[in-house]
Design a protein around this nucleic acid. Structure first.
Length: 837
RNA sequence: GCGGGAGUGGCGGAACUGGCAGACGCGCAAGACUUAGGAUCUUGUGGCCGAAAGGCCGUGGGGGUUCAAAUCCCUCCUUCCGCACCA
């Protein structure tokens, strides 16, 4: 009697896989490819079971596809630049590289311990010059095309990170994404940007291609983030001032322009000073403005903030009606969106209503719903929410038009008269990539006093990080205080020049890393387009929902840039996306700071990697959060022991038998039941893996099959050895993607000379069913005890029901559109066996 | 406020196209084997009634469609996530 010893078995098979180079893969146009990828980890602290769940899901996909004959690319690498390494280095007085490499070694050891089927030859680490030089190369290409640019602007500054954050890194209405308790400040700095807005239309339109294969909510989140609004700009001339520049507003509802009763400017609007300058008695207004501008720095509690404003003393002319409208400044108007100025239409906008109510500005209804209460006074207007389906009133020549007609006609009228035009406005901002930290990719640009800003020539790449920086975590960028880095020569005139001292946001690294896996050691270009052309797009990407916007949006942007550079031939890098749930303990995600991690290595030592893998796959469907439970993990452990004992018990008696070909003749009832339940399980598990990714119910099916075999004991009496072997081999094959080590061991115990890694996924051949694909079968139908009719059922329909459980005998009669349809139960030696109550 | 999910035993969760609700596992209970059990095996386990056979109720609440509803429709409630003065 052999004991299940996971540590021994796992080490044994991991070595065999490595020796046989089972997971190493090359592009091969003769074979169908499958690129499956888990988001690359940031190597910090220790790996816990939350990480493992992610990789277990990907590994199941990789192994199933491999068993089904695909050429599978399944790589792993490290998102190795970033702030924690720098902070740890400051704390421990070491170099960030030291800390990072130590963690990478630890992470790698853990992943290997779990037996994930990676091609380790393709491992990449983004902090290596061989990798980041291509960040710099891409940056220069973008610079050439005007997609990278520098400008002074208000940026998000995290006082804890001591660096700038991208808009996407500001969360919960104004907090740092890494320090959720730290309010982001606003600073004016000279910054590098990548022009994501140049692709705003494509980024939003191409989301359509992803529908159905990306989670709906990710698509919606991206769509909202990009935030496209179709609207119009309208110029309002300023009354009583000669030669004054008009004020331009943006609106999506130009049809309501006759209902405008004021113009409201953002406090930061550049025209405010001029307007106040012209007005008399302005000292109070100046004070208010100053206060408001300071207050607007805070983005906290935006939703509940009281609307405030003041009258500038000036008026604007409504170009449609000629009406004089007071110009106000309002704290709720954003400078960053549209033109920083709006027309207030209090009857048809909640915010305008609140503002005008407070300051007693008039309210005028201009859209009247066709049916329903007449909206004539201001109280009705406030309650009126559906402005989409009304007709215009109080709107001069446009009275009576529907909203859609009015928007069209009034926009072209404004264009004709030259005071407005239709425009699409995006919420998306360009991607600010400058970071004032050391541990990132240096931006490859120099500043010469004579020649100005110049790109570093390609031949001088990579611009290396200085090996011995002074890291303090305070003040300016560490690179700026490293003279040997800063001082350089001008590539044009050869005179003295200064290097750019900002480094790139680490999201640059992860925006294209998956291309590098296709050709990881190329030192002439970021990758070979032919190799990428074979592997791309990624067939299946797996990661947390946390990256729904940041990483996935940047990656999509990068892909489109590379396409326009002629490097790749596809529009979207990722065909299918799967967002797995988190592993929690005590109701919150595992994290070092919360002190609730279950270490992956500890897990492997206590129960073995297979039990850990099985449990994370079994305890919850993969897209849902999983609450870690030390108690219920015992169930997975027990199950593997049970299966192992079962195989061990029969191994000796069946090891020498030949394989069994489906042959219904002479089967005993016990054998038939066993074969039927085995094949049914096989079909259902295949469906769960391939169609639905319901790993938890796939495992449940396998457990059920195991129970059925136990129930059929003693197998020795009444079940031929070759049938026992067939059943146990299929059981082993079904387990292989999830618990590969124990599966290999049992496969060997059953007498197989070749490793399980060479085995194919079990498939029922058509001949075994004795039905051709489009056969029709005549089935007499009994309803309520009497033969009623004869139906023909296409094999397609019968096939569906092959997966029905044996227990669901007798078949069920279904009424569908007046027709009666039959569920068919498959019994091997009788072909089709129908019982209808 | 807007958008998207989710509500099924003591717990995690099954149930594909409307067709035997609660698969599988945890936990719990009883028993077997044991010097012992936090090992292993067997049996039971949604609620109520019943000795049993069996019956009734049951998928957040209420209503509806259907021979048939966890599943479809209406409505309300709860909850999680994302966005949030985007004009």
């Amino acid at each position: 009697m052999a004991e299940y010893n996971p540590q021994e078995i796992e080490a044994k098979w991991q070595k065999r896989w490595a020796d046989a180079r089972v997971f190493e893969t090359e592009a091969d146009p003769a074979k169908p490819k499958y690129y499956v990828l888990e988001m690359l980890p940031y190597p910090s602290g220790t790996m816990h079971m939350g990480h493992m769940r992610n990789y277990a899901i990907g590994d199941v996909a990789a192994r199933v596809k491999r068993m089904r004959g695909f050429n599978v690319l399944h790589p792993m690498g490290w998102d190795a630049f970033g702030l924690p390494a720098e902070n740890a280095a400051i704390k421990n007085k070491t170099h960030p590289r030291e800390w990072t490499n130590k963690n990478i070694a630890e992470f790698q050891r853990t992943l290997r311990r779990f037996g994930f089927s990676y091609d380790w030859r393709r491992e990449i680490s983004t902090c290596e010059p061989e990798y980041y030089r291509w960040n710099q190369w891409f940056f220069l290409r973008m610079l050439e095309r005007g997609l990278a640019y520098r400008k002074k602007s208000r940026v998000n500054w995290c006082p804890k990170c001591c660096t700038v954050l991208a808009n996407e890194q500001v969360i919960n209405g104004g907090y740092c994404w890494r320090h959720e308790d730290t309010l982001v400040e606003s600073r004016e700095l000279e910054q590098w940007f990548l022009k994501t807005t140049a692709y705003a239309d494509q980024l939003i339109d191409d989301l359509k291609q992803l529908e159905g294969s990306w989670p709906e909510r990710v698509i919606i989140m991206q769509r909202n983030w990009i935030g496209r609004s179709q609207g119009a700009r309208v110029k309002f001339a300023i009354a009583d001032v000669a030669d004054a520049d008009p004020i331009e507003i943006f609106t999506t509802r130009i049809d309501t322009i006759y209902g405008a009763t004021a113009l409201i400017l953002a406090p930061a609007h550049p025209a405010v000073e001029r307007l106040l300058g012209w007005a008399q008695d302005d000292s109070i207004s100046w004070t208010r403005l100053k206060k408001m501008r300071q207050a607007s720095v805070k983005t906290e509690d935006v939703a509940t903030m009281e609307k405030e404003g003041f009258f500038t003393g000036r008026f604007a002319i409504n170009p449609f009606s000629g009406e004089k409208l007071p110009i106000w400044v309002g704290n709720f108007v954003l400078m960053e969106y549209g033109t920083g100025a709006i027309m207030a239409v209090p009857a048809h906008d909640q915010r305008d209503f609140e503002f005008c109510r407070k300051y007693e500005l008039p309210i005028r209804v201009v859209v009247q719903p066709e049916a329903g209460e007449p909206l004539l006074d201001e109280k009705m207007a406030a309650a009126f929410e559906d402005h989409q389906n009304g007709k215009l009133v109080n709107s001069g020549p446009f009275d009576g038009l529907s909203v859609d007609e009015a928007i069209r006609k009034m926009t072209s009228f404004a264009e004709l008269k030259g005071f407005g035009r239709g425009e699409v406005v995006f919420r998306l901002r360009d991607w600010g990539i400058s970071r004032q930290r050391y541990w990132g990719t240096p931006i490859p640009v120099v500043y010469c006093e004579k020649d100005g800003m110049l790109p570093v020539p390609d031949k001088d790449l990579p611009v290396l990080l200085p090996p011995n920086p002074k890291l303090t975590g305070e003040g300016e960028s560490p690179l700026a205080s490293t003279p040997e880095f800063v001082n350089t020569t001008c590539p044009k005139c050869g005179g003295p020049a200064r290097r750019e001292t900002d480094t790139m946001d680490t999201f640059v690294d992860s925006s294209w890393y998956f291309y590098r896996y296709c050709d990881p050691h190329n030192d002439a270009s970021p990758f070979d387009s032919v190799k990428v052309g074979y592997w791309f797009p990624i067939d299946q990407y797996i990661g947390g929902i946390t990256h729904a916007i940041l990483h996935l949006l940047y990656s999509r942007f990068w892909c489109k840039v590379m396409r326009d550079l002629g490097l790749v031939g596809h529009n979207e890098p990722i065909t299918r996306l799967f967002t797995q749930g988190m592993v929690q303990k005590g109701g919150v995600a595992m994290s070092k700071s919360r002190g609730n991690v279950v270490g992956a290595i500890d897990m492997a030592q206590k129960y073995g990697a297979d039990t850990g893998r099985l449990y994370t796959l079994f305890a919850a469907p993969p897209e849902k959060d999983l609450e870690w439970s030390e108690e219920s993990i015992e169930g997975s452990w027990r199950f593997l022991n049970r299966v192992f004992r079962l195989v061990d018990k029969h191994a000796a008696s069946i090891r020498e038998t030949k394989g069994w070909n489906f042959d219904p003749k002479g089967m005993t009832d016990k054998e038939r039941d066993l074969i039927r339940v085995t094949y049914q399980t096989m079909l259902r598990v295949t469906q769960d893996f391939e169609k639905r990714w319901h790993f938890n119910s796939a495992i449940a099916q396998i457990m059920e099959l195991t129970n059925e075999i136990y129930l059929a004991e003693p197998l020795e009496n009444g079940v031929r050895p070759e049938i026992r072997r067939e059943v146990l081999q299929i059981l082993t094959l079904l387990l292989a993607p999830m618990t590969p080590h124990i599966a290999e061991e049992m496969w060997e115990m059953l007498g197989n000379k070749e490793g399980l890694w060479n085995a194919s996924w079990p498939v029922l051949e058509r001949e075994q069913l004795e039905l051709a694909k489009d056969d029709e079968v005549e089935i007499p139908v009994q309803v309520n005890g009497r033969v009623r009719t004869t139906l023909s059922v296409a094999t397609g329909a019968a096939e569906l029901d092959l997966v029905a459980k044996a227990k669901s005998d007798p078949a069920v009669v279904r009424h569908l559109d007046g027709k009666r349809i039959i569920k068919v139960i498959f019994v091997p030696n009788k072909l089709l066996n129908l019982v209808v109550k």
